[in-house]
Nucleic acid binder design. Sequence first.
DNA 1: ATAGGGTTAG
Length: 544
Amino acid sequence: MGAASLGSRNSNRKQSTLLVPELATPMSCLQSLSGQLLSLQNPNPNCLPPSLLPLRRHSSNDPTTQSSPPQEDDLPVLIADAVLRHSGDDDPRTLARSLSRLSPNAWPPALVDRVMKRLWNDGPRALLFFHSLLRLPSFRPAASSFDLAIDLAGRLRDPRALRRLLFLRQHHGLPPTPRTFAIIAERHLAAGKPDRAVRSFLSMPRLGCPHDLSTFNSLLDALCKSRRVEKAFSLLRALKNRFLPDAITYNIIADGWCRLKRTPKALEVLREMVDSGIEPTLNTYNILLKGFFRAGQIREALEFFSQMKKRGRKKNPISGGNCRPDVVSYTTMVHGLGLAGQLDKSRKVFDEMVDQGCLPSVPTYNALIQVICKKGSVKDAILVFDEMVRKGYTPNAVTYNLVIRGLCHAGEMDQAMEFLERMKREECEPNVQTYNILIRYWCEEGEIEKGLQLFGTMLGRGGCLPNLDTYNVLISAMFTRKRPEDMVVAGKMVREMVERGHLPRRFMFNRVLNGLLLTGNQGFARELLRMQDRHKRLARVVRP
DNA sequence: ATAGGGTTAG
């Protein structure tokens, strides 16, 4: 399709009130802008899903573990399994001995990082693994592995472990990097301590990590992503002279306002950006476009998008070069229009992008599939799934999860399970979300056994560790039947989640405790209380 | 891993 026909279509539109700022006359445009805008067949505690049995998930005569010989690629899987199976004591020396037996002399950083990521949802084990490696004389740790460990210590809210890791990394001649400070800032922000995040940033040069604009930008980004846009902005004001802001700086702040659905503020930032002589980028426009949808300003989004197209067609490379919609803009449109209930328009934009010479990506298909699942029928979403496969795209885990969720929501549990199998067959590893979706819906259907069964299989080879959501879903489900055995299962889940570094909400903990007391499981209840005592530091900060 | 595009369920 030629630009001419589009042009005429566009010129028929009513006069726009919203314009993409043009560099030629930034002021005038912006002035008009800123105004607006296991199968427990028999629920017997002895018949728990494997992970709840006292350790040892694969018995050695399990045929599935004996088959395939270890390959380069599943080395991280095998090692992570070994760490999880390593029972009993938390002495790094014991595990260090096993590791030095089990494995190569060399522990390349990539391998270590992959194992740690696999163990991510068992923070204590992941840290034990890393500390054990540090005991091997030949081990040369990498900064990236220290960063992962520091991140985990922060997530486990263990400042002592964190300080120790910082000390150890210095000892290995690895000063903290900008990434390290980003991790720490993010932890402070998640804990509701923005001032500490800022102070940690200010301390960087003193700790051997020089400041620059990019480190400043990442602090602003972390502040904005945790909704402290005002704070980010005043920090920018205060330090403007030390860190001369660039387009990214302004994009970060604009995005912060957009996340709070305050598009007028985002437009003000845009104006200030242009006033200080910084040219908005395509990212800037995509941020705004998404912002309009987030704020429910569908008409504004449509108008903004059409201005992007209109200006993008101009020959003038300065005013048009950076606002022609790209695949991200189109994906934003497909997603936004669909969520707003305008499926026809969404599909139209999807088809139009190809005419415009912009090929959809996997995320574009994901956006379309998601909105069809939500506002249309899963059947149609699967047609799009088939279409993308036919065109040679490889669906990723997000794609599968969307279809599986759609099927679950439509009550098509069996078909959802078939998609899980298909996912494995196509060697797209199911992730924890995949399992969470299926477990949740099985439980909602009243098929708690099926949920527990999935919980049991998710830990198998090529599986993944449960996270907080997994435990929350299953523990809640244990209260739908009024069986004493279920309380024991719930209690074991609470014990296991705490051992893996996940904090149950106070409400959940007390509910399980009461359940155990009411069903005559005083002993187990006492054990949980003792555990809570041991984890006092954790228990005190039970999430709100 | 310096910014933009896909995942709760209600």
